[in-house]
Design a protein around this nucleic acid. Sequence first.
DNA 1: GGTATAGGCAAGTGCGCACTTGCCTGTCAA
DNA 2: TTGACAGGCAAGTGCGCACTTGCCTATACC
Lengths: 98, 98
Amino acid sequence: MDADPDLFRALGDATRRTILDELIDRDGQTLFEICGRLTMKHGLASSRQAVSQHLAVLEQAGLVHTRRQGRYKFHHVDTSPLRSIVERWPIHREDPDP
Amino acid sequence: MDADPDLFRALGDATRRTILDELIDRDGQTLFEICGRLTMKHGLASSRQAVSQHLAVLEQAGLVHTRRQGRYKFHHVDTSPLRSIVERWPIHREDPDP
DNA sequence: GGTATAGGCAAGTGCGCACTTGCCTGTCAA
DNA sequence: TTGACAGGCAAGTGCGCACTTGCCTATACC
């Protein structure tokens, strides 16, 4: 009945949504880069472990894919899971322009 | 930074998502109708108060509008708030058809 | 009027989840 | 090899949230 609870759970947290924003602004960041930008640009004093767990949730939802390279792990966004939302509840137009 | 936390909070619960499904299947239901259909069709033994609180969250998110008529209160879906999701994170195509 | 129906309000409870704390693994440069 | 750097794992904690419980208001039908 409910397709993917992981997707909605991932979107349920404000910090995770900001992480998505950051990854769209600059794709392929590492964990420490994301931590830094969250602190600098958004004033979110999130610890490294907190962000790491957030990224794990985003990855489980399929919104983020990871790529290992040496001791670095790059994170890439994938917005395609969001399509299931608008497919489940089609957005009817509000007739803004006559 | 974060436009509407209410929207994502509303979508975060599985019962609320099922309520949206039910209201799309049959718009303008009352509280008791929704309770009945949740129990019958989905096996969710949700109490009246629980569903009432769910509807309040959905209404606060703008996903449900209500219309009073006598002692009845009809609930109507409005999927337009979902547009902010795909506007915030545009869905790029996965090239499914070459 | 009286009663059943449809819904609302508010305090209390249990559990999931975000976050911390502490320690461990693996990679690169000196 | 040794140290710094990038990341992982697991147990513990605090709080928000879904749900219950109990009682109250208002509309409709007899």
